[in-house]
Write a protein that binds this DNA or RNA. Structure first.
Lengths: 227, 227
DNA sequence: CTCGAATTCAAACAAACGTTTGAATGTTAG
DNA sequence: CTAACATTCAAACGTTTGTTTGAATTCGAG
């Protein structure tokens, strides 16, 4: 009985998930073959089908493993904020920080594959395959409705459809910022040194999002007049 | 000599590009087979390799066909704005409108495949394959540096790295808004009726982006203190 | 140790992939 | 018409894909 035999519960299962996370991020779902994946995981080719059933089921497992804890953490953080505030209404910026903080905290974690996952996730919101998008949507639904309710309380004067759009814009900014690593940075001729100084990025991102969320309402008369 | 024989210069070439645009948008690059693509275009399986050389070269041609005119149009619009303004500095919101306008105008065009292309484009900024991202970056480079210079003139007090980040956020918001069709909308429980009323969307998007661009600077002391 | 379940393994499966080939067809100019 | 070129076509190429199989191996409980 060696020191290492402390009974890892699903060792190869976990190794496969880690390898999948990294390879899916690097090459995408289709371009990652089971042969490359299992080789990287140090497992047999048949291991994926044995442990997960199919490649599609593996993809689903990759997202469930991280997304469920991440979003329950978001909700818990929001609950904590509201409890601390007593009856007072929350600052919109505090709600934003609770949402983006969960993503940015995961990006700092380069030890486990959190960074890989966040970049993979950001790209998957716009994946061509409908069943993948609907899986993501399903995993996000509880947190999203919870945060929408919080924003509605914090911004009672904002029309419902306007809030939905501004949440959409905010979500898009976050997703793209985390997923796109070089495209615009290179174009703008910027050194990517502080790219993932998460604290500085959080300050910049939160300032941008809060201003956008609180932007003065567009004059709908202008829109109709111009039409 | 029938009426139809008015000598279309590259009929099948164009049909292939149109079919590729739609199928790449629906299923992605890898999941779109040459057999399905050529069948939809009404061409022979070998036609793609004959007219373009390879599947990768076809992908490149799909982007070049639309992206080059779109970005030269952006630059021309910006030139026009600056000429009309004489020596006065432009409003940041006007610069934003010149940039997003080109995308939104193309989305209104459902006759030709502009709408398909915009959604495909929005997803491709974060494509896993590096040579695809670098192609996009190369096609965007002239417009991007031109708009960066315009923003620098309009916002002389903003530090350079802050401007780069805020342009990155704006670009991401636009890209995601155009590419993501259902993910967040369904989550938020919103009817997608006015999804592509381009005029209303432009008003909403411009208001959000302008506010974000002009957001009060984050206090870097806060960032360092918290660290 | 022994048995039965869980896991790993090498090998093979049929299907689909992008690409190439060489002949057939269509088009244009002399 | 003929010659030369451009395009289309059916067929086949060699790889690679995700998955399955059945035997070998490992492992934990009686």
């Amino acid at each position: 009985m060696s020191l290492r035999s402390v009974k890892p519960p699903h060792e190869t299962r976990t190794r496969i998930l880690d390898a999948a996370e990294e390879l899916f991020m690097q090459h995408g779902f289709e371009s990652t073959s089971m042969r490359l994946l299992t080789a990287k995981a140090g497992a047999n080719l048949a291991a994926v089908n044995y442990h997960f059933g199919s490649k599609d089921a593996l993809i689903e497992a990759v997202f469930r493993r991280r997304l469920d804890p991440m979003n329950t953490g978001r909700i818990a953080e929001l609950d904590r904020l509201e409890k601390d505030a007593g009856g007072r209404t929350l600052e919109p910026e505090a709600i934003i920080r609770a949402f983006v903080g969960a993503s940015l905290r995961m990006i700092e974690d380069s030890k486990s594959g959190g960074r890989n996952f966040i970049r993979l996730l950001g790209r998957t919101y716009t994946d061509p395959q409908k069943h993948i998008r609907s899986l993501i949507g399903q995993l996000y639904a509880p947190a999203m409705s919870r945060f929408k309710a919080a924003f509605e309380r914090a911004l009672p004067q904002m029309p419902g459809d306007e809030l939905v759009w501004r949440m959409h814009f905010m979500f898009g900014t976050l997703a793209y910022t985390l997923a796109a690593t070089d495209t615009v940075q290179l174009i703008a001729g910027c050194k990517p040194e502080d790219r993932y100084d998460a604290r500085l990025l959080e300050a910049r991102l939160t300032a941008f999002l809060a201003a956008g969320l609180l932007a003065p309402m567009h004059d709908s008369a202008d829109v109709k007049k111009a039409a």
